[in-house]
């Protein structure tokens, strides 16, 4: 008997609460920056592609939806010749982001990905590459790696000594 009145009271009380339904898509919900949505490729602080085409995202991907081909410029800087994500297969698990040693691949809080044609879910590098650094600021892989590239010679990376003079016999 008491429970019936309690239920009636609760229902009546709800009538005076604010509705929580969001009028999506007119009204956008807040998604945290770490939300795992559409994948992007970012650039380093110098504005160059961060991706060094190491293939770690591709191998980490449990649905094998990333494929790429490495190439390098005349100074030996590696970058992807093509970089393709088949979003119709992607499960947004974020393993690629975990695997990425250069913070290049990042998941963003954009989850509005629906198409009438599956072909349109296949994103190439020009669709993925953004012009900023994304979530992780300041990191530049080639500034800490030993490899020389244009504008950064051997021994000029962070925490490196200048190249050894191999003709020197001094201790």
């Amino acid at each position: 008997m008491f429970s019936i009145f309690r239920t009636l009271w609760q229902v009546a009380a709800h009538m005076f609460q604010r509705p929580i339904t969001v009028q999506y898509p007119d009204e956008k919900p807040y998604l945290a920056p770490r939300y795992r949505g559409r994948i992007i490729l970012s650039r380093d602080p110098d504005g160059e592609e961060r991706c060094v085409a190491c293939y770690l995202c591709a191998v980490a991907c449990p649905v094998d939806c990333i494929s790429l081909q490495a190439t390098q410029d005349e100074y030996g800087r590696r970058y992807p010749e093509f970089f393709r994500i088949n979003f119709s297969r992607c499960i947004y698990c974020g393993y690629c982001e975990d695997a990425c040693p250069t913070y290049a691949i990042q998941l963003t809080p954009d989850m509005e990905m629906s198409e009438y044609r599956r072909e349109n879910m296949v994103y190439e590098k020009e669709h993925l590459l953004i012009s900023g650094e994304g979530k992780y600021h300041g990191y530049n892989f080639y500034r800490v790696a030993g490899l020389s590239i244009r504008g950064k010679d051997k021994g000029e990376a962070i925490n490196e000594d200048p190249p050894v003079d191999i003709h020197s016999l001094l201790p």
Binding site: D64, C65, V122
Partner: peptide, 15 residues
């Protein structure tokens, strides 16, 4: 067994 990219390699031609 770690071969990657099976579902993306040919996605530019056919999905």
């Amino acid at each position: 067994h770690r071969y990657s990219g099976r579902t993306a390699m040919m996605a530019d031609i056919t999905v």
